[in-house]
Design a protein around this nucleic acid. Structure first.
Length: 728
DNA sequence: AGCACGCCGACT
DNA sequence: GTCGGCGTGCTC
């Protein structure tokens, strides 16, 4: 009887052999349900053979093979294989983690007929209906209409997503002539929205990429905020769709999916699109995955996990905001979706486009050295729009009160009078970052992490932003008993309080994780901002990403200096990218943008470069520093991370691992050190850095070392290899 | 990862 | 005398 070799979701890097009837090589990539120990599990068939190394008495028979869906394509299995090897993670775990949950269980996929896909479009009379015409208690109807008025067209699936009850309203609305319905089954490339004329730069970019669309190339699409990178994506996707091929678009955050999805649906209204992200439930995720695999979905839009979607006829991959660290998974399998996207593109002989206004230094360096092809968009695409004016406010001269300096308050006031919107950016949620005893200097610590508890005044609580721990305010200092304990420093809530006092008539809205936690909160907030129901926005980095605020003319930045004295060598790069992104929120259409940065170091090269919008100047400076210090992109790194209840256990383990390493001369092994955040969620963490100027040598070394570490008695230590680490 | 096997401390 | 602690090792 033939043997199938199955990858299972277990932390050992071996395949498990089973006897199976009626199997052939065509079954590679199918799911098989097999007995494993006392349990039944489902894995993926990776090989079919007549032989096995396993003694016959140990060999069991597979319970069954699922044939209701097509096998995983060979290319996807290759991707998993590469991922397993490159990141040194067991193959079975890589594969099963990359599949939708519904494919991991012992059940066949339920292929019940999916509901007919209709597409509903808002009519011109529908556009004129005011949301207030709908009684406020009819919340679903209000939300649905609001959604229609934002994106104009919605599919049955999207509507179901808004609310299961929303579908009931549609027939009435068709009667009222607010919307029209049409069946969508074809994938015709029909563009409905008004198509902007390309700028000369955009045209050069589009032509260059489409002219070379038949082979693998990594393109760095390097365009300032507002230069119209999205339009370049759209044109390239269009050329791929015309050939009947599919496009994969990766974006950093779930919160950006609706926005980009709206753009795509408006442009390619009849083209089936799926979006895949962690906000979907298991069924939705499986449905989207299957549509992509069957080739029905032509545009696959998603966060990093979407890089593992089977796509039968991929024509292009786009990675938007490629510098964003959320493309790197920070637990378990620590893969970079951006780097895997490049592997996939090479494998499929198609272009991959990395888009950014502030590329990662790695990508920029690759573009400079010619590994990547560099296309630049230097001017804003919208007519009349100029780059915002960026200035520093020297807080050594202009002292701040409650975190706000005089010039910033005055600028806010002028902005209010002109009825423009303004934004205060402060990357710290809560009321104040610490609770301080003024007599002995005690600050409230987290018991489980090496961090300070953040003051959340509204619910009279202290919160740890790392582990979620909450506790009540102490009445007095637990160290010296003094009652003079008070919040110290600024967070979004405190800035909100201060500004409310300073501008009592202004409409102020705070946007951070605390205010957007509620379902649909984001949609409501964006709607309020777009319809100018808000004068001053206060927000964290949530605000920095992607969203267009057309009425925004002033951005104030508080407390950015912290990153300048960070020990993380990537802190400057990240700060620059983040500030550039926030600055880009100002002055989109006809309103000139103004950005004011409160800092004690206005002469710092980072702020100097920012004021001149000069990414290249800063990038060159940082690259020179990295070269001198021997940091990426001039070396390749890997981190052996370990955690346990006691730091000694961790350091002993790392010391043992270092002992059996025996690195070649080209690979440098550093001493174990405690992690930046030594305690996290009750565990102590440390790591050991390995680096080399040769990726090949580093990888070869890691492979051997990984095998040796696996044999160590791991006691109570949890460890992982983090290849190309971003955080230390 | 689970789950069993296995060898040492406090309990009805 | 046992119940159960979690260290070690295996799963085709």
């Amino acid at each position: 009887m033939p043997i199938i070799r199955v990858a299972l979701n277990v932390p050992v890097d071996t395949l498990f052999d089973y006897q199976a009837e009626d199997v052939s090589k065509d079954d590679i990539g199918l799911r098989a349900c097999v007995p494993f120990g006392k349990k039944q599990v489902t894995g993926i068939i990776l090989a079919v053979s007549d032989e096995t190394q396993i003694p016959i008495e140990k060999l069991k028979s597979a319970h069954g093979i699922f044939r209701e869906i097509k096998p995983l394509p060979a290319a996807l299995l290759d991707l998993f294989h590469f991922c397993s090897q490159y990141y040194h993670h067991p193959l079975g775990m890589v594969i099963l983690n990359g599949l939708p949950v519904k494919l991991r269980n012992n059940k066949p996929v339920n292929l019940k007929r999916k509901p007919a896909q209709y597409q509903y479009s808002l009519t011109s009379s529908g556009k004129n209906v005011a949301v207030t015409q709908i009684p406020a208690r009819n919340r679903v109807a209000r939300r649905l209409l609001g959604e229609f008025q934002q994106t104009e067209t919605l599919t049955s699936l999207q509507i179901k997503h808004i609310s299961p009850r929303a579908e009931k309203l549609l027939q009435d609305w068709i009667q009222l002539d607010w919307i029209t319905a049409k069946f969508c089954s074809t994938a015709a490339v029909a563009r409905v929205a008004e198509i902007p004329v390309l700028t000369a730069e955009q045209e050069v970019a589009v032509n260059a990429i489409t002219a070379d669309a038949k082979q693998f190339n990594t393109w760095l699409l390097h365009g300032v905020t507002g230069s119209g990178k999205t339009e370049v994506y759209l044109r390239i996707i269009e050329s791929v769709l015309v050939q009947g091929r599919q496009a994969l678009v990766l974006i950093p955050e779930i919160s950006l999916t609706p926005q980009l999805e709206g753009v795509f649906r408006a442009r390619f209204s009849t083209v089936p699109l799926v979006s895949l992200h962690s906000g979907l439930n298991d069924t939705e995720r499986l449905t989207g995955w299957l549509q992509a695999q069957r080739g029905e979905a032509k545009i696959i839009l998603g966060t990093r996990l979407a890089v593992f979607t089977p796509i039968s006829d991929l024509g292009v991959i786009i990675v938007d905001e490629e510098q964003d660290s959320s493309f790197k998974q920070q637990d378990g399998l620590r893969y970079s979706a951006r780097d895997l996207a490049i592997f996939r593109a090479r494998q499929s002989a198609i272009p991959v486009i990395l888009g950014s206004a502030t590329p990662s230094l790695e990508s920029y360096y690759n573009a400079l050295t010619g590994r990547y092809r560099h296309v630049r968009l230097l001017s804003r695409a919208v007519q009349n729009a100029t780059l915002p004016l960026i200035q520093c406010i020297d807080t050594r001269i202009n002292k701040t009160q409650e975190g706000l300096s005089g010039p910033l308050i005055q600028a806010l006031d002028r902005c209010l009078q002109k009825k423009h919107q303004s934004l205060i950016f402060i990357n710290r949620r809560g009321y104040a970052p610490v609770l301080l005893c003024k007599s002995c200097g005690w600050t409230a610590p987290c018991q489980r992490c090496s961090s300070r508890l953040v003051v959340h005044l509204r619910d009279k609580k202290l919160c740890c932003h790392h582990c979620g721990h909450q506790e009540l305010f102490p009445r007095a200092c637990p160290q010296c008993g003094n009652q003079d304990i008070a919040p110290f420093g600024q967070g979004t809530q405190r800035v909100e309080e201060t500004l409310t006092a300073d501008f009592p008539t202004a409409r102020i809205l705070r946007i951070d994780r605390d205010s957007t936690r509620r379902k649909h909160a984001w949609q409501e907030i964006l709607h309020a901002v777009h319809t100018h129901q808000v004068d001053i926005l206060i927000g964290t980095q949530l605000l920095a990403k992607g969203h267009d605020f057309p009425n925004l003319s002033l951005v104030g930045i508080l407390n950015a200096d912290g990153a300048l004295y960070s020990t993380d060598f990537r802190a400057s790069e990240r700060l620059f990218a983040q500030l550039m992104q926030v600055a880009g929120r100002a002055g989109r259409a006809n309103v000139a943008g103004h950005v004011l940065i409160q800092t004690e170091f206005p002469d710092h090269p980072l702020y100097q470069a920012l004021q001149r919008h000069d990414y290249d100047a800063l990038a060159q400076t940082l690259l020179a520093e990295r070269k001198m210090a021997g940091f990426p992109p001039y070396v390749y790194q890997a981190l052996l991370r370990a955690e346990a209840h006691h730091i000694k256990t961790v350091l002993d383990f790392l010391a043992q691992a270092a002992q059996l390493a025996h690195p070649p001369q080209t690979v440098e092994l550093f001493d174990p050190v405690p992690a930046h955040m030594t305690r996290l969620k009750g565990l102590e963490r440390a790591h050991l850095l390995v680096q080399s100027s040769s990726r090949k040598h580093l990888h070869a070394f890691l492979t051997g070392w990984y095998a040796k570490i696996t044999t160590l008695p791991s006691q109570k230590v949890r460890w992982v290899l983090d290849v190309d680490p971003l955080e230390f």
